[in-house]
Design a protein around this nucleic acid. Structure first.
Length: 255
DNA sequence: ATGGTTGTCCTACAA
């Protein structure tokens, strides 16, 4: 089974890129973030024509998450239970015997801001929920835009980014704490190229200058990690005309 | 240089 995650930064704008990605990579499951549309504007017919069934937790203008799956998914839930959130940032469902959780972690804006505090509270709630979910679903994959670079090697200029949002110590500690409840970062199970990133700012020609961060992740429960044979970043879509600012991450599971 | 670009929606705001 091949699973993937991609922050598309508007699903309707990125539909041609998504179509090419699905054709080129043929993933069984794709988690999307920042669909930026409510249900009435979700391009469901187009996605079904590409051979995928879908579930979506959307909202107007901001956020929005979806899971596309060739085989469809059941037992679908939206949001973090017991965490009231007006923002559409989580959707989960079963594909076969694997629990798929699609997350769009808050950006946090800047360290010390209200949005930063919200990000940390959100991550605390996510951790508590997922720790409990692991008991019921030993085979679990949590994919998405975490808006956190875990280590210095995940940042093009770690000295410049140290202490800033996306790479501050409290954010990294929160991600580390989440992982410590029973996950592994699939990307780091394997040898990877230097300067492996998943997001590059639209400004200052950041992609061409390799000025990126690795903030999109595939976390696998320890039971599921045993089945993981590869994890890669597909930088192709980031180089296209009018791209998302994020690249997709792909993960291969021998299931 | 505290800069710059994109998406949504039409004016700022979020990223």
């Amino acid at each position: 089974m091949r699973i993937a995650t991609w922050n598309v930064n508007s699903l309707n704008v990125r539909l041609p890129h998504l179509e090419a990605f699905l054709r080129d990579q043929s993933p069984d499951v794709v988690c999307l973030q920042e669909t930026k549309c409510e249900e009435s504007k979700f391009p469901g017919a187009e996605i079904e024509a590409m051979g995928y069934r879908w579930v979506h937790n959307g909202q107007k203008t901001y956020n929005g998450v979806a899971i596309l799956a060739k085989a469809g998914c059941g037992n679908v839930g939206s949001g973090i239970p017991e965490f009231a959130d007006e923002q559409s940032r989580v959707i989960a469902g079963d594909v076969g015997d694997v629990r798929i959780v699609c997350v769009y972690v808050p950006n946090g804006q800047s360290v010390g801001s209200d949005k930063y505090e919200y990000k940390l509270r959100w991550l605390t709630a996510l951790r508590a929920w997922l720790a409990a979910e692991l008991v019921a679903h030993p085979k679990m994959a949590v994919l998405g835009d975490y808006n956190i670079a875990p280590e210095a090697r995940d940042v093009h200029d770690p000295l410049a980014w140290e202490g800033r949002v996306l790479f501050s110590e409290p954010e990294r500690a929160a991600l580390k704490g989440l992982i410590a409840t029973g996950f592994v970062d699939a990307f780091r199970l394997f040898e990877q190229p230097e300067k492996s990133f998943t997001w590059w700012d639209y400004r200052l020609n950041a992609f061409k200058r390799k000025m990126g961060l690795r903030i999109d992740h595939v976390l696998l429960s320890t039971a599921l990690a045993k089945a993981c044979t590869a994890c890669t970043i597909d930088t192709g879509p980031r180089g296209l005309e009018r791209p998302s600012d994020h690249a997709p991450v792909l993960c291969e599971l021998s299931l």
